[in-house]
Design a protein around this nucleic acid. Sequence first.
DNA 1: CGTCGGTCCTGTCGGC
DNA 2: TGCCGACAGGACCGAC
Length: 285
Amino acid sequence: MPELPEVETIRQDLKKYLISKKIKNIEIVLERLVKNKKNEFLKSLKNKTVKDIRRVGKLIILEMDNAKYLLVHLKMTGQLVYSSKKTNLAGGHSTGDNPEFERNKYSYIIFTFDDDSKLYFNDMRTFGYMKVVNGGELVETIESYGIEPLQKNFRIEKLKEIIKSRKINIKNLLLNQKLVAGIGNIYADEILFRAGVRPDRIANTLSDEEIKKIFNSSNTIIKKAIKARGTTFNNYVDARGKKGSFVKLLQVYGRGGEQCNKCKNKLTKIKLNGRGTVYCSQCQK
DNA sequence: CGTCGGTCCTGTCGGC
DNA sequence: TGCCGACAGGACCGAC
Ligand SMILES: [Zn+2]
């Protein structure tokens, strides 16, 4: 799934187009992806206007004008695709084909706005979801997330406290959204490579210096990735430039067996916490 | 508290 | 050609 940089890119793009649009119609093709009762979901959103679009971790939050909030999680293969006669943009997982801004076989929830533009929630593997919550539930949800790179709450003292008190491997820690928000499998590997720390190191054995490097590389990698509009995995770049280019900057993710860009050593691929993990045994200790 | 495997799904790829 | 397992950007759950 899209991780923080991809989700942030989607948020920024959608914000340009959806603010002040009123939802005219909602078509639910696959009810399983809606985590409310269908009628409650429809009633909360129909004829309501998008006031703002926010994000916490990998969760997108559409604030509506009735004090309800539409939470959208894309998980592994979710996309939010906006389509109007003037503008098309896609965000999330790439389908591999030419960008298709029209409805497809994975379009499971379709919003039509008052100007007849559309928002498609597509999801091949159907792990993603949409859920409408009220203000109290929103606060609860946001509070369940940990500190997030580039945000005010991301302070080195706090990160140190988290890392020093856990006996789990550092990659697992970075992937735990309740501890650190927004990092997924790609950026965890990239951050740890930049920090020079092996992903299987037990957190509470890290030195202050190593924690500092993880802190700094988290901010740097996430910032660079957002600037590059994230990482997408097909070669195709559409005319509107909507594909993330961070894939060109990947140092380890997806490069198991290839040469380390820093030291030419062969990159090691292991399975850690059930996830594919790549690191350099020379550059990372 | 921590690890491990299974689970929700669909699709692709490589080996035999 | 077909079949089968492994794997894929996430997160949750229960057993131990
Ligand atoms: Zn190296």
